[in-house]
Design a binder for these strands. Sequence first.
DNA 1: CGCGGCTTTGATGTTCATCAAGTAAAGTGG
DNA 2: CCACTTTACTTGATGAACATCAAAGCCGCG
Lengths: 230, 230
Amino acid sequence: MSINKCECSNCVIKNLFVYTVKDSDLEKICLNKVQKKYKKGEIIISSEKDVDILLCIKSGLAKYYRILENNKQYIIGLVKPFDIITYLVIFLQKEDQFINIAAVEDTEVCFVPIKEIEQIIRTNSNFAIDVIRKIVQASNDVIKRFTTINNKNLKGRIAWILLDFADNIYKKDIFELPMSRKEIGEMIGMTTENVIRTLSEFRKEKIIKINGKEIEIIEKNKLKTIAQYG
Amino acid sequence: MSINKCECSNCVIKNLFVYTVKDSDLEKICLNKVQKKYKKGEIIISSEKDVDILLCIKSGLAKYYRILENNKQYIIGLVKPFDIITYLVIFLQKEDQFINIAAVEDTEVCFVPIKEIEQIIRTNSNFAIDVIRKIVQASNDVIKRFTTINNKNLKGRIAWILLDFADNIYKKDIFELPMSRKEIGEMIGMTTENVIRTLSEFRKEKIIKINGKEIEIIEKNKLKTIAQYG
DNA sequence: CGCGGCTTTGATGTTCATCAAGTAAAGTGG
DNA sequence: CCACTTTACTTGATGAACATCAAAGCCGCG
């Protein structure tokens, strides 16, 4: 992890803060924000600490997850560049906070102290409404993913997540899987062996090509059908 | 469904609106709120309509659920008296809104137009922060439930939900199950037959007594163990 | 009184987790 | 840089957990 003050003039984050934020507020945010780099695997937010920052991804990929009693990870979702990843955790009491966030790829994030954000919420009502909107949206995304995945068999789950990577994360039909087979299993509720087995089946059926971490989707329509009816 | 203006002087809802709400705001809320009664099974919020109200349960019990492509219900959670049940849906665009809410028991709810709430959010920053806090809390509850349930086997799931009814909903170890075996299955991801089978096993092992919809928990500690390790 | 939905139990088969064992890849320390 | 260790990946065999199918009793309701 390394810390740098960032160059606000060309900051990608600015575009994120909705137009409801006044220029003067933006200045304040930018003055106090800090940019950090995390290597693949490093923990960004731990469930053991208070979350006193709003955290936005500039590049890379992160996962948010829960550690269960049996010490297994349950990956709740991924967070990609330009997402603000601590929305679902802000203003939570420390004792209620069970979510961890870690870098899945090398990741650059931008910190803004919650105090700053709270100040803007308090003085700019448009921003307050907008924050609520975004939190509700994020929460609904999670609920939708869970209810979707839980109703699919193993083939359906793998098909679904491959399409998710292709369409929502990488916007390409050929991409490097950012996570291990184990982590994929932890995200869609299946064992490592079955993740591998199912990927292999898709390869044998020539629906995808596999080269280590690289996946190429060949027959997207078949994949869609499997994702839908599987 | 029947509509009545309610008696605000003895309104249980008042106590819900956090102390951050000024008396004058409370007046405004109370002037515009409407109380409705729903019979068991009636739909309170449909995913096909914009949600323009904040909705609080005064008595009874409601479920929020998604209808999946295969036309099955997925029950995301239950909402009990004094909970505000539309937090997770407010300010969502109609096209993103997939959650339905229906009465599980005869239910009395209190409506406040979102416009009113928005007005208070805009003028009372403490209230705005408090709304965010509550939304985040509600969203975390859902995530926690999903990740917990998904990691349990069938016995563990039934044990867990029985304890949930006893400890969080009814606060008694003897209670009437508010829902059918089918609905319970739809909430914890198992078939109706297996809900019944598992309940029967618990009965045979004398962990619970069953009399139709009435459940009495006899061996709570055993149930807790099963819920934890199952 | 009869119909449809809810409940219950048993029998059967499929899906999936677990176990085992081996190969490949990626870190690690001398 | 190479031997070493660990971690990730892969395939097959086995059994357990769970869904599905079937059949019958029960209850509420028009």
